[in-house]
């Protein structure tokens, strides 16, 4: 059973941040779906619901998603459904059920850097930045590589462009955590391949992405998929061995590439 000594709904992000960092065991709570499964002892729980961060908007060349937006809103948002081949909406569709997605938030999903996250993989394949109160606005890829530091994730920016994208995942039961997930996007000749649930958090297959961007031979997609599978590291957990994940990386990347090439 988790413990919360104090529950606070700050009126400003600054206040939220100050409370968060004022004690070691103060924490921001997202959708609280995962919180209830642990036995965290939280001194002050910081709730972001009063900060107006529940929105998805298309403004100034960016799609902006507030941290308090739920995954269900991400799934059904016309803005997201109609951008980047709907890759972001697609990525969250199989996460448990709508009752769950109506509660869990984008901010918590991204900030927690869950290895199994489908959303992070999709975001990583796009030109995504996140805005943190303290660390400021940084590329998602940078954030994922940084060591954990307390902060408040405010919003996510995705550069609005004509990226085509595809999300691929492999699960046994539909509502299970993914064995592996892949997102691939393309803007003109520039490609990005992201692979998640390795089981570690999503990463960009840099070499494969570069090789593709330099020279695309549609007849030999497996070649690029193999590069991705070779350059990334994979681990073993209960859902699959490292070897299987590596093999599946080739398959899913190839399929994602094909889908992107088809959706002109």
């Amino acid at each position: 059973m988790f413990i919360i000594n104090e529950f606070i709904q700050p009126q400003t992000i600054e206040e939220a941040y100050n409370i968060l960092v004022s004690r070691r065991n103060n924490a921001v709570i997202g959708g609280s779906a995962f919180l209830r499964m642990g036995s965290k002892k939280i001194n002050t729980a910081v709730d972001l619901s009063k900060l107006g961060l529940d929105y998805i908007k298309d403004e100034d060349g960016y799609i902006e998603i507030g941290a308090y937006t739920t995954l269900r809103e991400v799934e059904t948002s016309p803005i997201l459904v109609n951008s980047f081949s709907g890759v972001i909406s697609n990525s969250v569709k199989n996460i448990i059920g709508i009752q769950f997605r109506n509660i869990v938030t984008v901010g918590a999903s991204v900030f927690s850097k869950y290895g199994f996250s489908d959303l992070i993989t999709a975001l990583l394949a796009l030109d995504t930045e996140i805005e943190l109160y303290k660390a400021g606005r940084i590329p998602l890829d940078d954030f994922l590589k940084r060591p954990f530091e307390k902060d408040v994730l405010i919003r996510i920016f995705i550069k609005k462009n004509q990226r085509r994208a595809s999300f691929q995942d492999l699960r046994n039961s539909v509502s299970d955590y993914p064995i592996l997930n892949v997102a691939v996007s393309r803007l003109d000749n520039q490609w990005t391949i992201a692979v998640g649930a390795r089981p570690r958090v999503a990463a960009i297959a840099i070499k494969a992405s570069e090789a593709l961007s330099e020279h695309l031979g549609p007849e030999n997609l497996a070649y690029y998929a193999d590069i991705a599978a070779e350059e990334l590291t994979f681990g073993t957990n209960e859902r699959g061995t490292a070897e299987y994940r590596q093999a599946m990386c080739k398959v899913l990347v190839k399929r994602a590439l094909m889908e992107v090439l088809e959706c002109k």
């Binding site: 919360i4 529950f7 609280s32 209830r36 709730d47 619901s49 009752q99 869990v104």
Partner: peptide
């Protein structure tokens, strides 16, 4: 529709 077991009552 939400999971009431995932929602803090204070919220």
């Amino acid at each position: 529709p939400v999971l009431s077991c995932a929602m803090l009552s204070v919220r």
